[in-house]
Design a binder for these strands. Structure first.
Length: 397
DNA sequence: TGCAAGTCAATACC
DNA sequence: GGTATTGACTTGCA
């Protein structure tokens, strides 16, 4: 966007050009506002593409990074939208999701790691906040300018329809009327029914999906999507729990886990194996309770990898105590992200002023839990192995 | 073909 | 007005 250039005056980020090929970057109708898909150039890394950097990046502590980013954004009164569109090339909702529920590094695909590398680089840039502030000012200026001109023209300020515009159609750049599909909003009863169905069968057959759809008067695609999304979101909740259980830090240390904080809607939506009774998700680890709640009730914690690959609460020395902070001395070298992990060997929740949660404070409890987790994972591993052999006689126990 | 992962974008919520 | 939630979609993989 124009504002990007005016602030940076730099050659484009390799990713920016890539992103722009993914998203149409036609003339900027927003009057200079940044758009998702056009992140700022990476400071001091112009010779490397972001993909290369992601590939070369050591393990990053996604929780520490998101924590720090949230902190910086809040402290400087910068919004997720601006940050997402400018720095990450993502929309506000995606940023919110990423910041609230970061997946551990080892669970992320290369693409999923990209925003975290960007965040880390942004944190390492001593002028990061400054640049974003400039961007904010420019946006405001552009907005005021549009407002003035539109007022004089007698048009709506934003040039958009007020209220939901779906079904009313919106004007595409080409001048074609495009009907937007109305967003399906599932009612509490429908959600409840779907959750019950999920508890019985996390992977329903096409026939079951059909039945559910007709019973609930929904499209089959809606039911399919719901199951996909639900599985995916439950899995993510589990990742968070995993981290909490393993290291006593992460979002939970701030009460951030959606499963632990009260559901806003009061529907218990966000993590719903809480209601599950013996739900079996055959893909997530045969026989493992589909939700942590049940495991916890039995005094158990679930970790997905033997030994609880407790890698996330690492790398904090810099990210949370100065490295990542704008203007900090940490990571000033071109690839500061590499120094991050190297500095992490001694890091822990205690070194970061992040209170450890629950029994993780007690080393003995922690050890016990890890042993249990390792044992559990061993069992899961064997079950998975067994499951891959159709003939029960080949099962190894 | 079905799934996971990642993301968008509408809308709910604060 | 900013943030959180969530249905839908795209992509890549097996």
């Amino acid at each position: 966007s124009g504002s990007d250039e005016s602030v940076n005056g730099l050659a484009g980020d390799p990713l920016a050009s890539q992103s722009s090929s993914l998203k149409p970057q036609s003339e900027d109708p927003s009057g200079g506002e940044s758009q998702p898909g056009t992140p700022l150039p990476l400071p001091g890394h112009s010779s490397l593409s972001i993909q290369e950097m992601v590939a070369m990046s050591p393990e990053l502590d996604t929780y520490a990074i998101t924590k720090k980013v949230k902190e910086v954004l809040t402290d400087n009164n910068l919004g997720q939208r601006l940050f997402g569109e400018t720095i990450l090339g993502l929309t506000q909702g995606s940023v919110s999701d990423l910041l609230a529920r970061p997946k551990p590094w080892h669970k992320l695909s290369l693409k999923g790691r990209e925003p975290f590398v960007r965040m880390q680089l942004w944190l390492q840039d001593p002028h990061s906040v400054e640049k974003l502030m400039d961007m904010k000012r420019l946006e405001k200026k552009a907005y005021m300018k549009r407002r003035l001109s539109s007022l004089s023209d007698g048009h709506s300020v934003d040039g958009v329809l007020s209220g939901p515009d779906y079904m009313q159609g919106s004007q595409s750049p080409g001048g074609q009327q495009q009907l937007k599909k109305p967003r399906v909003v599932l009612g509490p009863e429908e959600k409840e029914a779907l959750k019950k169905a999920y508890q019985q069968k996390p992977y329903p057959s096409p026939k079951t999906i059909e039945e559910l759809a007709s019973q609930l008067n929904l499209k089959t695609s809606t039911v399919i999507n719901w199951f996909h999304n639900y599985r995916s979101r439950i899995r993510r909740e589990l990742f968070i729990e995993e981290i909490q259980a393993a290291g006593g830090m992460g979002p939970g240390s701030e009460g951030g886990s959606p499963s632990l904080r009260g559901s806003k809607s009061g529907e218990g939506d966000s993590c719903d194996g809480t209601e599950s009774e013996g739900t079996v998700d055959t893909r997530q680890g045969l026989g493992m309770e589909d939700h942590r709640g049940a495991c916890k009730d039995q005094g158990m914690e679930v970790e997905s990898e033997a030994g609880g690959s407790n890698n996330s609460p690492s790398q904090l020395d810099c990210t949370t105590s100065g490295l990542a902070g704008p203007g900090s001395s940490c990571g000033q070298t071109g690839l500061g992200i590499f120094s991050l992990t190297e500095a992490s060997s001694t890091s822990s929740a205690s070194s970061t002023n992040i209170p450890a949660s629950g029994s993780a404070r007690n080393p003995r409890d922690n050890n016990l839990r890890k042993k249990k987790a390792a044992n559990l994972n061993n069992i899961i591993h064997r079950l998975e192995k067994a499951a891959s052999k159709e003939d029960p006689s080949e099962w190894e126990f």
